[in-house]
């Protein structure tokens, strides 16, 4: 519990966290507002809220980055020394970071939904574009779970790679570059991290993706693999 409290303090005591949260709100507000306002009614009808979520991949990068910073800040600023001197059971530190990453993901997801649904759905309502409530709940749930998992994925990948720049670049490669490769691989490509996450989040216009549940399970498996790898490597590596 002490380690968890410490990791929460680390998260909220640096400005980067709040800049990422603020940046996400601004970007998401612009996306939802512009899409709901500018697209034609024909484009919006029949797609429920999916069209509002075109900015989700970019927002996912925000939460992934936050998770990556949770792990890699220890090595970038060399605070790992004091962290692991106070808590020599290093796997507990990584576990606490994963949990804090999940909590941060929940907060970011709630903010995201509040902006996206609050702004986008009110504009759609004013334009008399119908939205199916059940579908909207499914999609927003998938987006929220995906954001939480993306943050956890960032924590795990950061614990494995340690270097902050390398981790963020690797994340961008996973979420954007590898998506291109995945498209070339057909069905097998839908099991790639970014593709499975897109399936979970109900990506717009990509019906070939995995279902939300399957996508969530596959991306969740990636998170578990990196989380375990991060804990094992952090426990066995030397801090020098």
């Amino acid at each position: 519990m002490n380690v968890l409290r410490s990791e929460l303090l680390k998260l909220v005591s640096v400005r980067t966290t709040w800049f990422l949260l603020g940046g996400m709100l601004v970007v998401e507000g612009l996306y939802a507002g512009l899409v709901a306002s500018l697209l034609s009614e024909e484009q919006l009808r029949g797609r429920d809220v999916s069209e509002l979520l075109v900015g989700t991949p970019l927002i996912t990068v925000f939460v992934f980055t936050l998770g990556a910073l949770l792990s890699t800040n220890e090595f970038r600023h060399r605070t790992a020394d004091s962290t692991f001197i106070i808590t020599p059971q290093r796997e507990r530190v990584v576990a606490a970071k994963l949990l804090v990453g999940a909590l941060a993901g929940i907060v970011f997801a709630l903010e995201f939904i509040a902006i996206n649904a609050g702004l986008g759905l009110s504009i759609l309502s004013n334009r008399d574009v119908p939205v199916d409530g059940d579908t909207a709940v499914d999609i927003y749930t998938g987006v929220a779970v995906g954001m939480v998992l993306a943050c956890v994925f960032g924590v795990g990948l950061g614990a494995v790679l340690r270097n902050q720049v390398v981790t963020v670049v690797a994340g961008l490669a996973v979420f954007f570059v590898l998506r291109g490769v995945a498209l070339l691989l057909g069905d097998a490509g839908t099991y790639f991290p970014a593709e499975s996450l897109a399936g979970l989040q109900g990506a717009v216009g990509e019906d070939f993706l995995l279902s939300q549940v399957t996508g969530g399970l596959v991306f969740g498996a990636y998170c578990v693999v990196f989380a375990i790898a991060g804990m094992v490597l952090t426990r066995t590596r030397e801090i020098s």
């Binding site: 002490n2 380690v3 409290r5 410490s6 303090l9 680390k10 005591s13 640096v14 400005r15 980067t16 800040n73 600023h77 060399r78 605070t79 020394d81 004091s82 962290t83 106070i86 808590t87």
Partner: peptide
Amino acid sequence: ADVHPGRSGRGHLRTLAAAAG
């Protein structure tokens, strides 16, 4: 130099104190 430059001195020590109970 092993301190996050963006934290206050007090904030830095609080993260350590919290971890140690």
